[in-house]
Design a protein around this nucleic acid. Structure first.
Lengths: 142, 142
DNA sequence: GCCCAAATTTGGAATTATTCTAATTCGGGT
DNA sequence: ACCCGAATTAGAATAATTCCAAATTTGGGC
């Protein structure tokens, strides 16, 4: 079983037939492989065109379906910046995203050791957070 | 000069003819008044229909234009949750947003006293953040 | 007060990302 | 090999937002 988080050029064939309870069809495998292959944050369209290289018959609708399935089974993370189109991220560890305004490129940003959300925010007690997204924009100092 | 942050039912007429370098036209005044009137987080469409109550001739395109102008002049904040349509927030103080999954309602969440972003994230040094958005989803404990 | 250029507003068309639909194909289990 | 539900597909539909070009309004100078 490969590590879904580390390997650089995963081979779709290496994926088991089921991951996190999700059946790994040809297309889902391919979509997942595309996302794992690069550490960038491709849009659905990016994924579509990369997937087409090896599977010319795949459709955009399928890419959307696969992404939805992979995201809901927590094999991939969906990343949003304001109203831009969603991007997809293979990094499942706790982190957030920084977009360099010059290049448009997105970088993962990790939390400092031991930081908890409750330490940061005045949350009404009893609040349960099911989803958290932190998005930063800016630029690396001149 | 009224406080843009506190007053409950602002009257568009109370706004000066220019705010933050932005000319206050009739429509911009009205859009701003609509947003200040309630502490909820209306979408562009919500703003449009509320604005129509008092200014029946206003167009949706104008509402979008006005919102854009108000946001870029920092009179109003734009709030995003994943791919949902943008919402607009009159609260200009430093805060983030929590969406109750049951009601869909959005609540402002303030940062704890003295918390700085650098304390939370491993940002490459020299990074300048120009925009930060933190969005939470969840529910208030049962 | 009147005229002009510039800015704003307007309605409708266009765009874009995404979702839906209905038909086809696939793949695992018998 | 056959069946059935799930997955894939192409294309249409949708929804939010932006664009466009024309009409209107504005403020500043005379």
């Amino acid at each position: 079983m490969i590590s879904l988080e580390q390997q650089k050029n995963p081979n779709p064939e290496d994926f088991p037939s089921e991951l996190q309870g999700l059946r790994m069809t040809k297309q889902r495998r391919e979509v997942l492989a595309v996302i794992l292959a690069e550490r960038d944050h491709p849009t659905a369209n990016d994924v579509f065109s990369r997937a087409q290289d090896r599977m010319s018959t795949i459709s955009l609708a399928t890419v959307y379906n696969c992404l939805e399935a992979l995201v809901s089974h927590k094999l991939v993370r969906q990343v949003n910046f304001e109203r831009e189109s969603s991007r997809y991220c293979p990094n499942l560890s706790d982190h957030c995203h920084f977009q360099d305004e010059e290049s448009g490129k997105i970088h993962d940003v990790v939390f400092k050791e031991g930081v908890k959300l409750e330490d940061l925010l005045e949350l009404p007690q009893g609040t349960e957070i099911s989803h958290l997204e932190i998005s930063l924009k800016g630029n690396f100092g001149k």
